[in-house]
Design a protein around this nucleic acid. Structure first.
Length: 209
DNA sequence: CGGCTGCAAGATTTGTCTAG
DNA sequence: CTAGACAAATCTTGCAGCCG
């Protein structure tokens, strides 16, 4: 758009006009735990389930809020693994649901009396299908603020990036990260994580053998 | 009221195409 | 074959306003 007034005022200027935002940062392991504990103590059943699943699934926000109960659970039992078709790329990704996430989800499903065909995170409004990504983003922001981090550096993509980064740091297994994120090519993963290509390919080869 | 949806529009993500 | 360009989908986030 044309006019950019005083860059720092919060009037009605586009939120990111002339601002350099950059990628959203991933959470550190201890930060994940900090948030998790807070939610547990606060008895935030829905948010705890949402948070745990977000970390575990590494799904994009739009895929996460659009999840059905039947995608991750059979009857009253939450599955250990789930396969979801990504909306953006139309490719399936498989992810593991950890113990505590299953617990949180089970509690949430029981608490909200959700049925198989319903959305996992239903909207309050009848006309809307499920929780909006807008609200999800806001919830994430709340989490970040609650543990004293800068909200502008983290977002919903932080959730997606967090586990992938942790796994890469720990195992150096790019191949695994690629599968977990559902990327089609190693190059995409490399670009995403911002790793040197030679470095990455070399590692992938070593891992393959 | 407070939680939530929807919109707008620049930024980021990620599959794919293209040149070297 | 690879890096870079391109494009389509998605994200980010202030703001307005609706619903339970």
């Amino acid at each position: 758009m044309p006019t950019e007034l005083n860059g720092t005022q919060h009037l009605q200027t586009p939120w990111n006009k002339d601002k350099i935002i950059g990628q959203k940062r991933p959470l550190k392991l201890q930060e994940v735990w900090a948030i998790r504990i807070r939610l547990q103590l606060a008895q935030q059943i829905r948010e705890l389930a949402l948070f745990n699943l977000a970390i575990d699934s590494k799904l994009r926000g739009c895929d996460l809020v659009g999840l059905h109960v039947s995608d991750i659970a059979h009857g009253h039992t939450v599955m250990h693994r789930a396969i979801v078709l990504q909306q953006k790329t139309q490719r399936p990704v498989q992810f593991e649901i950890t113990e505590q996430t299953r617990e949180a989800l089970t509690t949430w499903i029981a608490h909200a009396k959700l049925k198989d065909g319903q959305f996992l995170f239903p909207s309050r409004k009848h006309a809307s299908p499920h929780l909006s990504t807008r609200q999800y983003a806001r919830v994430v922001e709340c989490w970040v603020i609650s543990i004293g981090l800068d909200p502008s550096a983290y977002g919903t993509h932080t959730m997606r990036r967090t586990k992938a980064t942790l796994i890469y740091k720990r195992t150096k297994n790019l191949r695994a990260v690629q599968l977990l994120l559902g990327h089609t090519k190693l190059e995409s993963t490399v670009r995403y994580l911002g790793i040197e290509v030679d470095d990455a390919l070399e590692m992938a080869e070593q891992t393959e053998v």
